[in-house]
Amino acid sequence: MTTEPSQANRPIYLMLRMKPPWVFVDEIRRFVESFCACACPGESREAQVALAVHELMQNAIPHAGGESVDLTLQVDPAADRIEIAISNPGTEEQFAEFKGRLDRINQEPDPLRSYLRAMAEAPMNQRGGLGLARVRFEAQLELSITREGNRITVLAWGRLRAPQLKVTGGIHG
């Protein structure tokens, strides 16, 4: 079997609508990792994308109130772009709170510095405070948030062929 050359660079989409309890997040992460490995072989992005989906799903599920969480993943080889959208029902107050957290993370142009600050400031004995900064640095994805109707959507996007993460070391603060 051969792949038609004209189809090789077309965008590839994955769309999932779930009412998942927390325990299924691991299965979703594994599926996304496998999907990405097939959709963009040789790009070594699957583990980073899977990590991002896992963290964003774990953010979305507690706010969904038992309603559906939607995941859309787009891999576009021709545009060298990968995009994740995760949406869940959310109030105006939840949106404002989430946007405030994201704005603070995005204020720092260097994702590593933002991540290190989150590490220093995140409460150690309760969940939360680190996932978004982790996605931005470790998955090399930019983050934004929108609200339409009663649904909040977190968008994470970046290069499909992202350069390997390297740091000079010793950065702290």
């Binding site: 070594s44 699957e46 583990a47 980073q48 899977a50 990590l51 590593l112 991540y115 290190l116 590490m119 220093a120 982790r134 640095f137 470790e138 993460l165 740091v167 070391g169 010793g170 950065i171 702290h172």
Partner: peptide, 17 residues
């Protein structure tokens, strides 16, 4: 084989070399 470990540990090493 677990590629997430490389980036996560890289970040930890930056946090406290």
């Amino acid at each position: 084989a677990r590629k997430w470990q490389r980036t996560s540990l890289l970040a930890l090493s930056c946090y406290s070399p």
